[in-house]
Design a protein around this nucleic acid. Structure first.
Lengths: 196, 196, 196, 196
DNA sequence: AACTAATCGAGACGGTACGTCTAGTCTTTCG
DNA sequence: CGAAAGACTAGACGTACCGTCTCGATTAGTT
């Protein structure tokens, strides 16, 4: 057989199709960036039909989301003994991931497309919850060590870190690995002078 | 003449055209949202030709940016006597602006389109610099009052606030006016326990 | 069971399927016209699978043909005593059939689709032979009565009548019952002046 | 210039576009037959955009019609001295045209598509009126010669001839040039025996 | 009683064309 | 000479059918 045809396997979803489509999408992303990732191009590359694409990923945004979700994030959460060190390690790995892989661009577009598609917004939120969970672990470890200020709202603190990372991503101002420790320093530093 | 035709005024730019185009764009935004704002629609509504549009705003993103920039920001910077009070007032006004006007949506899309168009990214940065300047004023006033922790990096602190606001905007989690004081509280609270 | 599923009845054709398919096709024709009659729609309506459809009616045209053939033609061939009267009665009944039932539209499309599918062309010819046979009977009766011109080619004459009927059908100029006698008159009238 | 781009020539229809589209359509017809003539293929071949195609030819049928109309019919109407001879010459030329050029197939499909599109039906009728006009001339000449039967309805007679030609076309039974004189003979022969 | 063979409903699949939409470019004509 | 008008290329969009396929269930004959 000259063409490795991937026909129907009966009245049920062919997992090979999903694999092929996501792989094609990732390849296109890596080669031509996000604006090259059209449904048409993915279909062609994956040797899938547009009908199949739209059956399982009803919009471009949903496909983008699937691609983003499929990107495994094996980010480390090493125990360096201090919150500062842990954050430098973890956030640094994440920023590197965003900078060097297409995932950063995808995320940025997902954020935009989430506006028009509530489903994407929802999915993005779920994604975020799963992914930022690691930060909570770092904070919990710091609390166990007695590093945290008494009465600190851990959730708000988590948001503070996430927000900064997003801001860096979205404004194209991701700090270099060398600068990151200073940035984390500033993030953890108190704003107000101690009362009294 | 039944139609107030806006012909050429000679060999120079007609300022009425710019006004008409921006007004048309804003109307369309208000009526049909961001995806209704096509170059074609704006040209038609403004009774301008597409050529004229493209002469002055070379891409859709640039037009969006112009619309966003044209939105007057008469945000107040009242002196409430404390950084906390000032931030609640100022950030609250900004969030209300984002929530209730089309500007919020426009900004979100601009962020996305800035990726593909460096010019937009640049312009967005300039915009940000001009707008967030007010926060710097609040921080400076607080410093004069002796509120701030010694050695605080004011720029980093400003970023911290801006980042949080963007995050709220982009994740559709803008806090209600009632919740805002608590959020600002958390933002200003120290993370780490005082070294002792 | 709420749905009276029409499963296989073993290693032979299930006659209920044919019935259901043809009924569904006729219903769709009546409701949505000829362009609504897609294989997909018929399969869905008949609760038959597309595979089953294609097994027995290998193309849309063949299905159309089956629908057309299934329409009983109980056209009368009364003996009115003259060829003119017989033709008015018979052709009139046929034209009424074409005008008032979906069959007229089906036939028109069959004619078109016959071009691409020789099988349909063939089947249509057979159909025609069977159906126009009645005209031959009328002509034979007329011959027995001595009505016909000596040396007349009956087959050519039959074609002449059929051609005119098709032409009326295809150009949407089917004469009204009131006009038909005149038309038949014209059809039978000699073109050339008698020689000599 | 490597690409002979055919841009707009201002706010009016570019005749080069129409030419290119019709030429492309004719080429496709000649090469791949009628089912190869898709709007997509024509657009691609003519280097025209689909938008332009649909602007001027709102449907495939309209495009087909334009192609058919564009085919000049320089059919001769020689004066052979008898109606029979004239018809053999004229109808023979027309049948040859239908047999040897793609026009025959196009006409067959136009007839079919005219059913769904009244506009095409109308246009086809106009086309027919213009084209069959020649037959009227032949009949008029015959009348002047005193060939025709007194009281003959010339319009009905014309229809009779046209109907037969269409029938031959549509049933794939176009007579050979050798057989045509006999067929015309039959067409002109009286059906009924002379009264008396 | 097990096995074979064919039928059936279901629906996924690769394709292809549809008709619509938007972006951005271009030329003519008018004032 | 600028502006309006609008035709033009390019190509993505999402939809609809096409005709083929595999699955799993079903049942009539055969062994």
């Amino acid at each position: 057989m000259t063409q490795p045809s991937r026909a129907s396997i009966g009245a049920k979803r062919n997992p090979a199709t999903e694999t092929a489509v996501l792989a094609a999408a990732q390849d296109i992303l890596a080669e031509g960036g996000i604006q090259a990732l059209t449904m048409e191009a993915v279909a062609k590359r994956a040797r899938a039909s547009k009908a199949t694409l739209y059956r399982w990923w009803p919009s471009r945004a949903r496909l983008l989301l699937a691609v983003y979700s499929a990107s495994k994030d094996s980010l480390p959460t090493p125990d360096t003994g201090s919150l500062h060190g842990d954050l430098v390690a973890y956030v640094g790995a994440m920023l590197r991931h965003w900078s060097e892989m297409p995932e950063g661009r995808v995320l940025r577009h997902l954020i935009a497309e989430a506006q028009s598609e509530p489903a994407v917004m929802e999915a993005l939120k779920a994604q975020r919850a799963a992914r930022w969970h690691h930060i909570r672990q770092l904070l919990d470890r710091a609390a166990a060590r007695g590093e945290l200020a008494p009465g600190l709202d851990v959730a708000a603190c988590e948001t503070r870190i996430a927000a900064l990372a997003w801001f860096w991503l979205l404004t194209d101002t991701i700090p270099t690995p060398a600068d990151l420790p200073t940035e984390i320093d500033q993030l953890l530093a108190p704003v107000l002078a101690p009362a009294g």
